[in-house]
Design a protein around this nucleic acid. Structure first.
Length: 539
RNA sequence: GGGCCCGUAGCUCAGCAAGGCAGAGCAGCGGACUCUUAAUCCGUAGGUCGCGGGUUCAAUUCCCGUCGGGCCCGCCA
């Protein structure tokens, strides 16, 4: 009888081991981000969180690892509406983003406006790459050396570049360099063209089609053609591993052509890589690719407001890199539940029967926690329940009230460490943000002004009788919430002979148009009595 | 025309490295808990592994082909 295979190795561990087997004394992991606009969670999959996990794993193998994040600041501006207004987009198109002002007028610059929220949320995710901006890189002697080498082998570069191009072959004498226009600061090949280089004085003669300038600017202010830039940065930082979006991954795509430049022009072996699929955003039922410059985004710094950062990290760990992901804020409870399940598996509280799935979940959980998960199982409040509770408590800063509401509804330990308690409270706060800002209506607790028509059809004889009976009771005397609760039970069981469960559902339907809602007795007690009675009777 | 990725239960996905009984979670359905909707627990159903060939004692897994979905092969990064 053959045993079921239980081989399992996480893809992060596969890559980490492959890197470790290279037996280098130290490792450089690099990723890149253009500050072209909103920094969304999809970008952070391939360019922050996954390589971050890989770095940490590799470091745990006693390797010296540096994790860089290259910020492409010396890049042309290409944002589009609705991210920016059309006139803003037109005015700054092709301008070096470093020179573009803040679109909202709140920050020092465009770059600051998008980069600062990203930077300040990194602590939440506990991933801290060394950030290095390309405009700084171009100032460095080592980079100048690399550029010099490339420019001396210009013809060879052209030959290689043309190998990967279709019809539009680059002509003889092509200078693979995008100069900065001194006058308008355009840096896009759409506008500026290098006419000649002076490698001794490190200047470039250019013509600018945006402002019709013709002049000379410093080469450190311009940038390499993109195929060369990537290869140059590999060499500059001595990169061993660099992930990339799946758009680069195709045969003949940028990854391949950059590798050819690295081998044939610069004489080094390109780093290992890993392609990543994109994360799209579900908008009105349609799946749209997130794009920084177009403004389709669920922002990275928005995530910790609505869910634990580890939930996002876990999702990216458990899903294979080439799996296309679809995100929608409405999926957050599902993602949190999956994470909670992994946590329960990790602490051996409850495991899936399939051992391979269990291993994948546990390992992904560790990775989501940077290899150092909590030592004790945290208290788990199911996310959708947290969303509901958060809307019932009048003041979320009243921690005792929140905890009391939780104790009434689910089993949470009477005594818990401060850490556990804070974790619970944090989830409630996050679920509240989600419930009020993103949740589908069924999660929002809000009384309907009138009972919806379609609800009437759902009510039978018994239901109506029970509601009438409740109205009578309310009319007959004043109730405390506790007594009212008992009365609801009494009516259901003793008077009408129906299940209390059904009766509760019926009452919820009348007030909310759905089968669930806040704690009923308290809720009813908080309303004007006459209006309640009228509503119960006028069916 | 050339290439890459994905396709497994209603949904989200494992399993394929190195062939060996078709798997989870969620949603569903049925119960239990009989001071709450909820939560929790127990049970249950659900499949042409996109399709067709090939190799094999044995194919979801390997090979060839094909269909569907997404994407690249202009520019820009």
């Amino acid at each position: 009888m053959a045993k079921r295979k239980i081989y399992y190795k996480h893809w992060i561990d596969e890559e980490a081991d492959a890197l470790a087997n290279l037996n280098r004394s130290s490792y450089i992991i690099n990723t890149g981000m253009a500050i072209s606009g909103l920094i969304h969670i999809g970008k952070c999959r391939s360019d922050l969180l996954c390589p971050g996990a890989l770095s940490i794993k590799l470091r745990s193998l006693c390797k010296d690892v540096k994790h860089y994040l290259t910020l492409y600041t010396q890049d042309p501006f290409k944002a589009k509406p609705p991210l920016v207004k059309p006139d803003f987009a037109e005015k700054y198109r092709g301008i070096r983003i470093l020179d573009v002002p803040c679109p909202k007028g709140c920050c020092g610059s465009w770059v600051d406006h998008f980069l600062n929220p990203f930077k300040s949320t990194l602590d939440n995710f506990k991933i801290h790459p060394i950030m290095i901006a390309t405009d700084q890189m171009y100032q460095k002697p080592k980079m100048k050396m690399i550029i010099r080498k490339i420019m001396r082998k210009r013809e060879e570069v052209r030959r290689i570049a043309n190998r990967y191009r279709g019809e539009a072959k680059k002509p003889h004498g092509w200078i693979p360099f995008n100069p900065l226009c001194n006058k308008c600061h355009a840096i896009s090949p759409q506008f500026t063209e290098a006419l000649s280089l002076d490698l001794d004085n490190w200047t470039v003669e250019y013509r600018c089609k945006k402002c019709n300038d013709h002049g000379v600017s410093g080469m450190e202010l311009g940038k390499l053609d993109w195929r060369l830039e990537w290869a140059a940065i590999w060499l500059f930082l001595d990169v061993d591993f660099e992930p990339f979006g799946k758009d680069h991954a195709m045969a003949g795509g940028s990854r391949e052509s950059c590798s050819a430049i690295a081998r044939e022009v610069l004489g080094f072996e390109p780093p290992r890589g890993q392609p990543f699929e994109f994360v799209s955003l579900l908008v009105d039922g349609r799946s749209i690719e997130m794009t920084s410059s177009g403004g389709v985004s669920f922002d990275f710094d928005e995530w910790p407001r609505v869910a634990e950062p580890e939930v996002l990290k876990y999702w990216y760990m458990i899903m294979k890199p080439m799996k296309h992901l679809e995100f929608s804020p409405s999926r957050i409870p599902y993602l949190v539940n999956e994470y909670d399940r992994a946590e329960a598996a990790y602490f051996n509280i409850q495991e899936p029967q399939d051992p391979q799935i269990a291993l994948a979940m546990k390992r992904s959980y560790e990775l989501a926690h940077n290899e150092a998960p909590p030592t004790e199982m945290p208290i788990q409040v199911p996310y959708d329940h947290a969303a509901m509770i958060s809307q019932l408590v009048a003041d979320l800063s009243d921690h005792d009230a929140v905890l009391e509401a939780l104790r009434r509804t689910i089993a949470i330990p009477g005594k818990a460490s401060e850490k556990s308690t804070n974790y619970v409270l944090e989830r409630i706060r996050r679920a509240y943000c989600w419930a009020t800002e993103y949740a589908p209506t069924r999660y929002r607790i809000k009384m309907l002004p009138r009972m919806p028509e379609d609800v009437k059809h759902q009510l039978g004889e018994k239901d109506l009788a029970a509601l009438a009976s409740l109205a009578d009771s309310l009319e007959a005397q004043e109730w405390t919430p506790a007594d009212l609760k008992a009365e609801i039970y009494r009516i259901a069981r003793d008077v009408i002979k129906m299940s209390p469960k059904r009766f509760f559902q019926v009452i919820y339907l009348v007030f909310f148009g759905q089968k669930s809602g806040p704690q009923l007795a308290q809720f009813i007690s908080s309303l004007d009595k006459e209006s309640v009675i009228t509503r119960l009777r006028k069916l």
